[in-house]
Design a binder for these strands. Sequence first.
DNA 1: GACGAACCTTTGACATTTCAAATATCTGCT
DNA 2: AGCAGATATTTGAAATGTCAAAGGTTCGTC
Lengths: 171, 171
Amino acid sequence: MAEAEAIDIDLEIIVQGAHGRSKPELRLWLRMLSTTKLISQEIRRRLRAEFGATLPQFDLMAQLYREKDGLRLGELSKRTMVTNGNVTGLVERLEADGYVQRVTPDGDRRVTVAKLTEAGVILFAAMAAAHEGWLQDMMADIDPHAIAALWSEIGTVKTSANNHLAAAAFE
Amino acid sequence: MAEAEAIDIDLEIIVQGAHGRSKPELRLWLRMLSTTKLISQEIRRRLRAEFGATLPQFDLMAQLYREKDGLRLGELSKRTMVTNGNVTGLVERLEADGYVQRVTPDGDRRVTVAKLTEAGVILFAAMAAAHEGWLQDMMADIDPHAIAALWSEIGTVKTSANNHLAAAAFE
DNA sequence: GACGAACCTTTGACATTTCAAATATCTGCT
DNA sequence: AGCAGATATTTGAAATGTCAAAGGTTCGTC
């Protein structure tokens, strides 16, 4: 049967007119995208299975975890790279579940600050430990030296992309 | 004003207990994730602005573009790394817009095959050309040699992750 | 030729995602 | 005071995303 493990082919077959002679930038991008998607989905699956949480919830709680005083929703939005409107719903649900608490500071009533509840801190600590373990597991076959090198190289990709955003023209 | 460009801090501040001495695997993952998110969002923005299309639509059309005979929805699902149910809606909308066409082959009535219409081919060709240009632009500051090297290195990440999926245990 | 297992797609309930428009609130200037 | 403009968050519409359950179809086998 034409049944091979299509798992490793996926997104990378985009565009590159069959001959596979596409620009290196495009090839790199497709591989980054598919790899990230693959790992994300695995993390999502495990977060759901073991903690009943979603990845965006985990991300959001991660930000609050290291800011014991909480963060304004706008700050949360920037740090998680999630739109404002999205943060609203995310926080709403986490609050309903009792992991996050919303407060309006005295000074400025436009602002809403979100912080983890005690239950939130406990849950996140457990998730973070598991999360780190999953990543070490999934990257177990990679040369440790290559991991650090990749981190650095990808930094240049990020910087380059940042410098060429359409929105970055003005500032 | 506390106004710096938070754009480059973002996700990478997850977990790593403030001291920044977290495991290399975690650091790499966070950087991959934030970089991919950054570039994805820019591509999304441009696809929308210039073509009124979404990234998932682009991905789906890309797969159909290189398979002139069309693909079964299940195949599409695997290649785009999108769930079956999701493909249904995606194809539905693209069909409503006239870019994709659904056909049930004679042999097997369980199957639905999607293929690009002529309008779909024309639109995609234009989008693909622009898309490739955007990537070259966004990666313009990277050493060309590093791009190829990164492609290869990330391949090992993908392979490692693939070998450690919870679902891959049996087969 | 009927039955059950396997296969393919759709459906339904939710969560997340984006953008743009609407609300509130604060600030600075007159 | 009072108002225009900047800030902060919410809301609403539409698309995407997941999973699990439900529908049809086909296949192998008895």
